[in-house]
Design a protein around this nucleic acid. Structure first.
Lengths: 344, 344
DNA sequence: AGAGCTGATGGTCACGTGTCCATTTTTAGC
DNA sequence: GCTAAAAATGGACACGTGACCATCAGCTCT
């Protein structure tokens, strides 16, 4: 592979001059510049970022750790972040923790070995990797959490305003007349320490309700778990009249379970979910969703990270919240007069 | 950031000895090894892959270019490839061309600058980037095409056996009694040069049918384009009795269009599609699909690439085909006795 | 005309590692 | 107890670049 020395030789100039043709072309005499450019062209020279990174002491590389790449939310996030990184000349290393902190740690070590300059991370659940992240930060990697953050996180983050969204959702269901509202999955400090389930009780309180203890089950945030939970909830003596799914994946499981039970949406039970996934508009009835501004979140995340990296302000902490948007399509309606009959 | 010299100094050994603790620990005396390991631990040392790559002349990095990361097929592919890369100690750079060859070229240049050792690529449509790929290959990047390959591609590839799948699908519909079968999108050598639409006429011929000219429209392989095409097709004087969607994204558009037209699936029209996306099982009726063995394809792709890289056999060409699997769920049935009424 | 300045170009070195070769220490064999 | 071999350890250097400093010609200003 041709290097800058080959280019210099071919152009009949010193290596330093050849380098300047790339970094500071204005400092070269026009003919010299043309000669070097010709040599670059002829040799198909492309600067070696590996050597450059070593010398510079900083890579042009960002790491991105997602929780589950199969979820469209993360796919959209990757696209947004990739676009922005490309625009700024950074390469993107993507890792999928599958929400497993063991896998996550392996990827973090790889990122560290690769000396990524910045890391955008959606942490795995129940993760003991905070220490490792702190260490990475001390060694010069700027870290930004996205979609979720550790309690007392020392890092920057970019997040949906989960509180506002949950309040909006609960209020929406309350105003339709619902009193027996269940989230799919309760808060748990280790297993599911997410903001949405944490603030749900507060949102209920705000409209004068209390969460119903029988509905409060801790489940993994997956389609399968939501499917089983929905079956259980709807088989209770007094089942909920409205289900509030906290993730798009869970909504699929809940939807499947309701269909299977022969319950009609929204006549028998209302269904509201986070994440405007494309399938939610295709099913019958199309689902009411709370949409996240994914594109904007990804873009801002990269901007924060690159600004810190390029200005050498690694200790700067920036935290942004983004509002969600309720989209009504018809999967929520007033509850049936005599409540939902239990499906035993 | 601590380097191997710091480790050596702390352990009281020469740098070479410290390095051996990492690469060939068996060559060290047990106490020396322990001392170096302790130093590594205490300093939180992690070898610098950037420096290692430079010296070695080869990175531990793979590039992966997908056509559209939003499509669940690619998300699943990334997961599979990421798993295998992780298991083999390689970092993964992911790029999303959005099926745009201009964006693709930018990413390719970045990959080249980063000196990725291998590249797994799903090329963009109508791409003039083949020359650049050939150049990358000459400079030492092993290249493998996935899901699609250039005509006369000089590279290895891993692909679905599209011919077998299309033949299976057509035969399935034919056996149900369908004669007026339409694919969503016809073959076009530049815009949509995909195998599936190309072999469709052959598959029809195999059951004694000919493609119906009015159904043969060239469209972009997107949900939106498929939506409009479906509307057009079903408004023809003699609309198809069965739609064969060649991608999962298109199926969503077709499904939406059929619902909107008030056509019942499968009573009025049958719908068969590639890709077992999770939503296809959620809609009413659940869709018949042809599933791709994505996990296996990703795994084999990485194995081929890494074997070539590690054995320095960059010119070895390996080509693998994988069979699809037809899953019946109820969206295909015999056509109505008097054909589908046109929806004008 | 000489000093000072600017524009253009050249030379040297270090980033942290892996590889190769050299040296010292220990063990085996008789 | 001595030699040869093996085990264990050490030293020097290059990968391709970017940062820094050096050089030199031509020009302006006094």
């Amino acid at each position: 592979m041709a290097n800058i020395l080959d280019v210099a030789k071919r152009a009949g100039v010193a290596p330093t001059t050849a380098k300047r043709a790339i970094h500071e072309p204005h400092r070269l005499a026009p003919e010299t510049l043309a000669r070097v450019r010709k040599a670059i062209e002829e040799l198909g020279y492309e600067p070696d970022q590996v050597a450059g990174s070593l010398r510079r002491g900083r890579t042009q590389t960002l790491g991105l750790m997602v929780g589950n790449i199969i979820e469209p939310f993360f796919a959209a996030l990757i696209r947004s972040i990739a676009r922005q990184a490309r625009a700024r000349g950074y390469a993107l290393m993507v890792a999928d923790s599958e929400y497993d902190s063991g896998i996550e740690l392996q990827h973090l070590k790889m990122f560290r070995g690769q000396r990524v300059s910045g890391l955008i991370i959606r942490s795995a659940f129940g993760s003991p990797n905070l220490d490792y992240l702190v260490q990475m930060h001390k060694r010069g990697t700027y870290i930004l959490e996205i979609d979720h953050f550790y309690p007392n996180s020392p890092f920057s983050y970019v997040m949906l305003d989960g509180r506002q969204c949950v309040f909006t959702g609960v209020k929406y269901l309350y105003d339709l007349g619902h009193r027996r509202i269940a989230t799919l999955g309760d808060y748990h400090p280790v297993i599911t320490p997410d903001e949405r389930s944490r603030v749900f009780p507060e949102a209920m309180q705000a409209v004068g309700l209390a969460p119903i203890p029988e509905y409060q089950r801790v489940i993994e945030r997956s389609e399968e778990a939501a499917y089983h939970l929905t079956l259980e909830l709807m088989r209770l003596p007094e089942p909920p009249t409205a289900l509030f799914s906290l993730t798009g994946s869970e909504a699929a499981g809940a939807f499947r379970a309701l269909k299977e039970l022969g319950l009609r949406i929204p006549q028998d039970v209302s269904l509201l979910t986070f994440d405007n996934y494309s399938w939610t508009a295709l099913v019958t009835p199309p689902l009411d969703v709370i949409e996240q501004p994914v594109e904007a979140m990804g873009q801002v995340a990269v901007e924060i990270v690159l600004e810190a990296i390029e200005n050498q302000t690694l200790d700067k902490v920036v935290r942004k919240r983004f509002p969600g948007r309720l989209i009504r399509r018809g999967s929520c309606a007033p509850p049936p007069a005599q409540g939902v009959k239990s499906r035993v």
